Simulated scan of single mutants.
Amino acid sequence: MSKPRNRAWSPYWPIVLLALGFFGFWLATLWVVPTTAALLGIERCENRMEVISSAVHGETTPGQECLKPVDALAAYGTMGDMFGAVNALFSGLALAGVVLTLYWQARERRRDNKPFLIPSLDEQEDGTGGVVISKPGKASAVIGLPVVFGFSLTNSSPAAALNVHVQAGIAETSFKKGEALPLPIGPKGTSNLKLAGKIAGTDANTLVEKLRTGAILTLEVEVTYGNLEAVRWRTVVQYRLSLDEHARERDGTLLQAAIDDSQPESESPATGAWTGTTKIALVLTPVQGSWSFGEVEAS
């Protein structure tokens, strides 16, 4: 059985209901109310005292009330005078509705022309993409693990993406690295970006421990960009990081030796095992359901 389709709330419904209500009220004012008043309405004469002349002496007696039908044209005029202020009020509300509609239309037009960037960290044929850890270095007896994130950014929309900024962070650590692209990404275009950083201290210990034991290590990628109307958008995706199963023992040994080493770099067996071409390429698995896309709220 197919599920019912969710209908989004439309901002035009209040305007339609207001217009229908105004039309019904106007029709009642124009025809129903005055006609009913003309058919059923009566006008009472004011009480008055009639002077009855008497030959003996003059005396006064209460006069009788008089009844007469209300004139239809007079009722129309009276009702028109009564609802003149109401008509002015509804005219103002109608004008406000028109202004609000124009504002909504202009707002939606700014958001219709929106780009959509898809960040990819998969290894490409030219060697770009992925997450690679290279030869560690030591500064003040603290081992730093150089890491490079290679991104491929694809614009899947017919709108250009301007002021593109990419940020990568490992959720289980405090490591974050971001950089902006120097050029926009055109419609259906692709651009590559490499983020180079260094994971050191307790963050390096956490990274190595989780990689060696196969625990969950989450990389969160956030890409923000704008369209030609200066509206900002954001794409977010998460990856799970792990060591290659076929090289887990070797890579785990290298990483553990790097963070355990306390000797000077020139005498370090760990850093000595890392040649200029030795690299550890991490395996990335996209987290299902982690993709998200939306507008960045202006602060």
Rank of each mutant, 00 (worst) to 15 (best):
T285W: 02
A38F: 10
V148D: 04
G58C: 03
A247V: 01
D122L: 12
K279V: 13
V164C: 05
A257R: 07
H57W: 02
G186V: 12
R212W: 09
K177D: 04
T202K: 15
A160E: 08
G201T: 07
S292T: 13
P187T: 09
A270I: 00
L162Q: 09
S174H: 15
T78W: 04
G63R: 06
G144Y: 08
F23P: 03
E179H: 12
Q105R: 11
Y76I: 04
R248A: 13
N47A: 11
K138S: 12
M1I: 08
S266H: 07
E222W: 02
G137I: 02
I15M: 10
F83K: 06
G80I: 06
G137P: 00
A74S: 09
T218W: 03
I216V: 11
V98D: 01
L121S: 10
Q288G: 02
G189N: 10
L73S: 10
G130F: 03
P184K: 14
V51S: 06
N192A: 11
R234Q: 14
L195A: 08
L73T: 07
A281S: 11
Y76C: 04
N47R: 13
A19E: 02
D71R: 08
D261T: 00
G272T: 02
V223R: 12
L117Y: 01
I52K: 07
T206M: 12
E59M: 08
D203I: 12
K68R: 07
I259F: 03
G289V: 04
I216P: 03
G186N: 12
D112E: 14
R48N: 02
V166E: 09
V164H: 08
R212H: 08
A75V: 07
V283Q: 15
G294I: 07
V33F: 15
S2L: 14
A8H: 12
P136C: 06
V98P: 01
K177N: 11
L243Y: 04
E50T: 05
R5S: 09
L284S: 05
G276T: 03
